[in-house]
Amino acid sequence: MVDYKKYITVDNERRFGTPIISGTRISVSDVLNWLANEMSVADIISDFPELNEMQINACLSFAAQRESRTRVA
């Protein structure tokens, strides 16, 4: 699993504290939505050349880690 902490930051000064890919204003949520809407990794990188495959995988890793901590009462 990718160590998402190398690629994802949360800064209250950028995008209101939304988790973003470090060095960009692209949120984890943006990337996850693109993937959910059937954009391929290659399509995302083509549209956003500042991104790479490791950063996109870090978004998936971040979401998986967050989901594993979610507790349903």
Rank of each mutant, 00 (worst) to 15 (best):
R15D: 04
V72L: 11
I56E: 00
V28H: 07
N33M: 07
N37H: 01
N37I: 04
M39P: 00
I20L: 14
E13C: 04
I8E: 10
A36H: 11
F62N: 03
R14M: 10
Q65L: 14
M54P: 06
E38Y: 03
R25G: 15
L60K: 05
I56G: 06
L51K: 01
K5L: 14
T70W: 14
S40W: 07
S40G: 00
D11G: 09
F16C: 13
Y4S: 01
I44M: 02
N57R: 03
G17T: 15
R15I: 00
M39C: 00
L32F: 03
K5T: 15
M39N: 01
N33R: 09
S29Y: 15
A58T: 01
E53T: 05
D3H: 07
N37G: 08
S68R: 14
S46Q: 11
G23F: 13
S68M: 14
L32D: 04
S29V: 09
N52Y: 04
R15N: 02
E13H: 13
N33I: 15
T24I: 08
T18A: 12
I20S: 00
A63I: 10
M39D: 00
Y4G: 01
E38C: 12
F16Q: 12
W34E: 01
A58E: 09
D3T: 06
E50W: 07
L60N: 05
V72G: 07
T9W: 12
I8H: 04
L35P: 02
R66N: 15
Y7W: 03
E50I: 06
D30G: 02
I45W: 03
F16W: 05
F16L: 11
R66P: 08
V10F: 08
L35V: 06
I45N: 02
I20M: 11
E38S: 11
E53F: 03
A36E: 08
E53R: 00
A63P: 00
I56Y: 09
N52V: 12
T70F: 14
